[in-house]
Lab assay of single mutants.
Amino acid sequence: EDPKKEILLAMLMVDKEKKGYVMASDLRSKLTSLGEKLTHKEVDDLFREADIEPNGKVKYDEFIHKITL
């Protein structure tokens, strides 16, 4: 499956209130437990690539855009 789609799906599952962003810690939890599970190192690399703080907010569109360039 398309990794971009899988990450967006994980974000939507976490963002039940439809705020347009999720906490990095919640996204990490989903990405390491769903679908093609990522390792913590892979998530760290994704966050670093997208300039996301480990305890920060992750906005869908910015995150998807940064990791798919």
Rank of each mutant, 00 (worst) to 15 (best):
E1M: 10
K19A: 11
L38A: 03
H40G: 09
K37C: 12
K5H: 08
L12R: 15
M13H: 14
F63W: 07
K37A: 12
V22M: 10
T39I: 02
K59M: 10
T32H: 02
E53D: 14
E62N: 00
L12Q: 15
K4H: 11
K37M: 12
L12P: 12
I52C: 04
P54T: 05
I64A: 07
K57N: 10
F47T: 04
D45R: 09
E62D: 09
F47Y: 09
A10H: 11
D15Y: 07
M13Y: 04
R28N: 02
S25K: 13
D61Q: 08
K16I: 02
T68P: 14
A24H: 00
M23C: 14
D44E: 06
D15T: 06
E6L: 06
V43K: 04
R28T: 01
V43R: 05
E1R: 12
Y21D: 09
D15C: 13
Y21K: 07
D2Y: 07
K57T: 12
E17P: 14
D15I: 11
K66Q: 05
D44C: 06
Y60P: 04
M23Q: 13
F47K: 03
L8D: 10
H40A: 12
D15K: 07
D2C: 01
K41D: 13
M23H: 14
M13Q: 15
E49G: 03
K4C: 08
R48L: 08
T32R: 08
L69T: 13
K57F: 09
R28A: 04
E42M: 04
K4M: 13
I67Y: 04
K19I: 05
S29N: 13
D61P: 02
L8Y: 06
I64Q: 04
K19L: 06
V14P: 11
R28H: 07
E49T: 03
L27A: 03
Y21A: 08
K41L: 07
R28C: 02
A24R: 02
V22Y: 02
D45K: 07
Y60E: 05
D44Q: 03
D51K: 11
L8V: 04
P3N: 12
K66W: 14
G20V: 00
T68Y: 14
K37L: 09
L38R: 04
T32G: 09
V58N: 07
D51T: 07
L12N: 14
L8P: 09
E6S: 11
E49V: 09
A24M: 05
M11Q: 10
L12V: 07
E53P: 14
L46E: 02
Y21N: 05
Y60C: 07
K66M: 09
S33T: 10
S29E: 14
V14Q: 15
A10P: 09
D51V: 04
S25P: 09
I7D: 14
R48A: 11
A50I: 09
K66V: 01
E49Y: 06
K59V: 06
D44H: 00
P3D: 00
L34Q: 11
G35E: 08
I64H: 00
E62R: 01
K59C: 01
M23P: 11
K66T: 05
V43Y: 00
T68E: 14
K5I: 10
E53G: 10
E49H: 03
S29L: 10
F63D: 11
F47I: 15
P54A: 08
E17K: 09
D2A: 06
V58L: 07
D45P: 00
M13S: 15
L27Y: 02
M13G: 15
Y60Q: 01
V22C: 10
D2E: 03
L27P: 01
D26Q: 10
F47C: 01
L69H: 15
R28K: 10
K57H: 12
M13F: 04
E49C: 04
D61A: 09
F47P: 03
E17R: 05
K59E: 07
E62W: 00
M11A: 14
I67W: 12
V14H: 14
L38H: 03
L9V: 06
G35I: 05
D44L: 00
K41Y: 11
N55C: 06
A10G: 11
L9C: 05
P54E: 13
K18V: 03
K5L: 13
G35D: 12
V58K: 04
D44W: 00
K5T: 11
I7H: 14
E1S: 10
D51H: 09
I7C: 07
G35S: 12
P54C: 04
S29Y: 08
L8E: 09
G56K: 08
D51Q: 12
L46Q: 03
K37I: 13
T68Q: 15
M11D: 14
H65T: 11
L27M: 05
L38I: 03
D26F: 00
P54D: 10
H40E: 15
I52S: 02
D44R: 00
V43D: 05
S29G: 08
M13T: 14
D15G: 08
I64K: 08
V14K: 15
V22F: 02
K18W: 01
G56A: 11
G20R: 04
D26A: 05
E17I: 08
S33Q: 13
S33F: 05
F47E: 03
V14S: 15
I64D: 07
R48T: 08
T32W: 03
K66Y: 10
H65M: 00
D26V: 02
G20L: 00
D2Q: 06
L9M: 14
K41E: 13
V14I: 13
L34S: 12
D61L: 08
K41S: 13
L69S: 14
G20M: 01
M11H: 08
T32I: 08
K4E: 10
M11L: 10
K16S: 08
L12W: 04
E42I: 00
I64F: 06
K16D: 03
D2S: 09
S33A: 09
I67M: 14
D15S: 06
D44Y: 03
K4W: 12
A10M: 03
R48N: 08
K37N: 08
T32E: 11
K41R: 10
M13W: 01
P54R: 04
V43G: 01
V58F: 06
E49K: 06
Y21R: 08
L69V: 11
V14W: 07
E62M: 00
S33R: 08
T39F: 03
E62A: 04
A10E: 14
I67N: 13
M23K: 15
L46S: 03
K18R: 11
K18Q: 10
K66R: 11
M11T: 12
I67D: 12
V14D: 13
Y60W: 10
D15M: 11
K66F: 12
I64G: 07
S33L: 07
S33G: 10
M11S: 13
M13D: 15
D44V: 03
E6P: 14
L38S: 03
K37H: 09
D51Y: 03
P54H: 10
L31M: 08
T39E: 05
E42W: 06
K4G: 11
Y21S: 07
D15F: 08
L8Q: 09
G56E: 10
I52F: 03
D2V: 09
